[in-house]
C-alpha cells in the first residue's frame, strides 16, 4: 500500500523506464535515496521488469524478413499501378476464410467484389458461384507428391459448372478449371470450379497454370504459407500472378505454357 508520503508505483515504473522528464526523474531518484520503502519497491519492480524482458527475449525466434520485405515491396508497387481507390479496397478486403476445425473442407472466400473487368465467365470466376474451396491439408501433404496431377473433372460436374455460368460450351473454348488448384489443396467441388476461357485475352488458363506451379514451389520452399497461397489465388489470381512474378502482363513463356487439356 502506498503512503501519501511515498512515490506511487506507477511513477516508479515511469522512472525505471526513462519515461519521466529529467527534473521529475531526478526528484524521484532523490526520494528513493532517502526512502527505504520506495527504494525497495523500485528495486523489486526494476528486477521484475529486467527478468521479464530477459525471459521474453529468450523466446525470440529469429525471423529474417527478406521474403516479407520483397512481398511488401511488390504490393506497394502493385498499389501504385492500380488507381488509389481500388488499390485500397482490394488490399484490405479481408478474405473471409471460414475454417471449421472438425470439417474436412474449408471454404476460402475471395473478395466478393465485382469490378468492370470481371466478366461472368472471364479470366476471373464469379465469386458468388466459385468462391473457392480447399481441403484442410497440411503443407507437408501438399508437397509430398513431386508431380501432382489434377484429378479429371467428371463430365457431369463440368456440365453443372457450365449450367451455373449459363454457358453453352464450344469445344476447345474453355478449360473447366480449379480456382484453387489441387496442387495447393483445392477441392473438386462445384464451388471451386469455373469455366475459364482457354485462349481468350492474355489471362488464360495456361497463365494460371504457371502461377499455380510457382505458388506451390513457394509454399514447398517455405516462402509463403499454404493458407495464404490459397487465399490469394481464390481472391484474385491475376493480382497474385502480378505480385509473385512482379509483372503487369503475363510472361511470354507462360502464355505458351500448356499443362491441362481444354474441355471438349
Amino acid at each position: 500500500m502506498n503512503d501519501a508520503r511515498h512515490i506511487d508505483d506507477s511513477v516508479l515504473m515511469l522512472e525505471i523506464d526513462g519515461e519521466l522528464d529529467s527534473a521529475e526523474a531526478a526528484a524521484a531518484r532523490r526520494h528513493c535515496e532517502a526512502c527505504l520503502e520506495c527504494r525497495e519497491r523500485r528495486r523489486l519492480l526494476a528486477n521484475a521488469a529486467e527478468r521479464f524482458d530477459a525471459a521474453y527475449r529468450s523466446a525470440f525466434r529469429p525471423e529474417p524478413p527478406d521474403a516479407s520485405v520483397a512481398r511488401l515491396r511488390a504490393r506497394m508497387a502493385d498499389a501504385v499501378r492500380t488507381p488509389a481507390g481500388t488499390a485500397a479496397k482490394a488490399r484490405f478486403a479481408t478474405p473471409a476464410a471460414a475454417i471449421g476445425a472438425a470439417a474436412a473442407l474449408i471454404i476460402v472466400v475471395g473478395a466478393i467484389e465485382f469490378s468492370g473487368r470481371r466478366a461472368v465467365a472471364g479470366p476471373l470466376p464469379d465469386a458468388r458461384l466459385t468462391p473457392g474451396l480447399a481441403h484442410a491439408v497440411s503443407r507437408d501433404r501438399v508437397c509430398a507428391d513431386n508431380t501432382p496431377d489434377a484429378p479429371e473433372i467428371p463430365s457431369e460436374l463440368a456440365a453443372q459448372v457450365f449450367r451455373g455460368y449459363r454457358i453453352d460450351p464450344r469445344p476447345r473454348a474453355y478449360e473447366v478449371d480449379y480456382l484453387i488448384s489441387p496442387s495447393l489443396g483445392g477441392a473438386g467441388d462445384i464451388r471451386n470450379l469455373w469455366p475459364q476461357p482457354y485462349a481468350e485475352g492474355v489471362w488464360t488458363s495456361r497463365v494460371k497454370d504457371a502461377l499455380e506451379d510457382h505458388l506451390r514451389s513457394l509454399v514447398c520452399a517455405g516462402r509463403i504459407e499454404l493458407a495464404a497461397a490459397q487465399r490469394e489465388i481464390a481472391s484474385d489470381w491475376i493480382a497474385a500472378y502480378q505480385k509473385y512474378f512482379m509483372v503487369d502482363k503475363p510472361l511470354p513463356d507462360h502464355i505458351a505454357f500448356v499443362k491441362d487439356r481444354p474441355w471438349e
Binding site: 506511487d8 506507477s10 511513477v11 515504473m13 523489486l44 519492480l45 521484475a48
Partner: peptide
C-alpha cells in the same frame, strides 16, 4: 492514457516480482 499504461505496468510487475522471488 499514459498514466493508465504506467499503472497497468506497475501492477503487473508488482505481481511478477512476487512470483519471481
Amino acid at each position: 492514457s499514459l498514466g493508465a499504461v504506467a499503472a497497468s505496468l506497475s501492477k503487473s510487475f508488482s505481481r511478477l516480482s512476487n512470483v519471481s522471488d
